[in-house]
């Protein structure tokens, strides 16, 4: 591991000033991903600015019914919070589905959004990777890719975004707040993760040196009836091979509002807008759910070893919408 300097920040402006425009400096939150990547040589920062003690650890229910979540709130505190569990249960479930109890105590909301792909070629510095080392190639396309993307990928990178939390945030139209030396800014989660294209190394649209300060969830009554479901290769403590955050409002058998976001299928949490558009105003039936799933997955491009994900995601969409419909009628 490369030697590095360490500074602890106690206010947001101080943290942003410490990072400055140094491309070799990194913010340190819980460190559960960054320290791991430093050990394997993927990350080689010269300076760490510890932001864990910034006063950004609050979760507040806003007057309009939305929720404001500070960037240094831990995954554990997010999942345990009564307002999260009551108003956005799929968000609590998504966070609880990720990592282990120890890691959830350490990891922060800001860091969770910025965590890196677990593609085995990205994390192995002896192998080429366009995301880690632009222009070096992507061995996953012709190599080990059974857990890689089926939507929105390119020949340059087929890695998936690993976060469970971000999938629920995408379903609920989260807005990400940040601070730079030039002042604050906001980015909707739709657009926070740019399309892969030929620049997989550009992982977010945050300005250089920006510090995530929080996430705002707009009020969404539909979210009170929501679920997160995750499929993985063992029962617990594993990344998804497919996941879904869904929310549904049905009246007299007709879909009034629906939210769907898919995980482990793309380089970003995948908001299933084609499926949503097809569902709203139509019947809450298994046939309609399957048709919506097919519409969303029509653009899927599978490689030899990840085609199962198309079937898996179709079944997940139908299953979660069916469960939510049953919950409505209860």
């Amino acid at each position: 591991m490369r030697e590095f300097g360490y500074e602890r920040a106690f206010d947001v402006s101080g943290a942003v000033a410490l990072i400055g425009s140094d491309p070799d400096a990194r913010f340190l939150g819980g460190g559960t991903n960054l320290v791991d990547l430093m050990k394997t040589g993927v990350e080689r920062p010269a300076l760490l600015v510890d932001v864990r003690e910034l006063p950004l650890d609050r979760i507040e229910l806003e007057r309009d019914g939305g929720l404001r979540i500070g960037a240094t709130v831990t995954n554990s505190d997010l999942a345990a919070h009564p307002d999260v569990r009551r108003h956005y249960p799929a968000l609590a479930q998504a966070v609880l589905a990720g990592a282990s109890g120890q890691l959830r105590n350490m990891a922060t909301v800001g860091g969770n959004l910025l965590q890196r792909t677990r593609c085995g070629y990205f994390t192995d510095i002896s192998r080429p990777c366009n995301r880690r080392s632009p222009g070096s190639g992507c061995p996953a396309v012709g190599g080990e890719h059974h857990n890689h993307a089926i939507l929105g990928a390119s020949e340059h990178c087929i890695a998936t975004h690993p976060s469970d939390m971000a999938v629920a945030l995408a379903a609920f139209d989260a807005v990400i707040s940040y601070e730079t030396a030039d002042g604050p800014g906001e980015l909707p989660i739709d657009g926070f993760y740019p399309p892969v294209g030929d620049t997989p190394h550009i992982e977010t649209t945050l300005p250089p040196g920006a510090l995530i300060t929080g996430v705002t969830l707009p009020p969404a009554p539909v979210a009170a009836r929501s679920r997160y479901r995750k499929v993985r290769e063992r029962a617990s403590f594993a990344f998804a091979i497919g996941s879904i955050a869904g929310a549904l409002d049905v009246e007299d058998g007709v879909v009034r509002e629906v939210r769907l976001a898919l995980g482990a299928v793309a380089s970003m949490p995948w908001r299933a807008r084609a499926a949503e558009r097809l569902l709203v105003g139509g019947p809450a039936s298994a046939e309609a759910f399957a048709a919506a799933a097919d519409a969303e997955l029509a653009a899927a491009e599978a490689l030899p070893d990840n085609g199962y994900k198309v079937t898996l995601m179709r079944n997940l969409i139908v299953a979660v919408l069916t469960e939510l419909t049953e919950e409505v009628s209860r």
Binding site: Y6, R8, L28, G30, G31, T32, V35, D36, L48, D50, R52, S76, G101, Q102, L103, N105, M106
Partner: peptide, 19 residues
């Protein structure tokens, strides 16, 4: 390597000592 930090369990292998 699990220890308790401020009463909460954490993996000490990913926790920098200085932090």
């Amino acid at each position: 390597c699990t220890v308790l930090l401020d009463g909460r369990r954490a993996v000490s292998c990913l926790q920098l000592a200085v932090a």
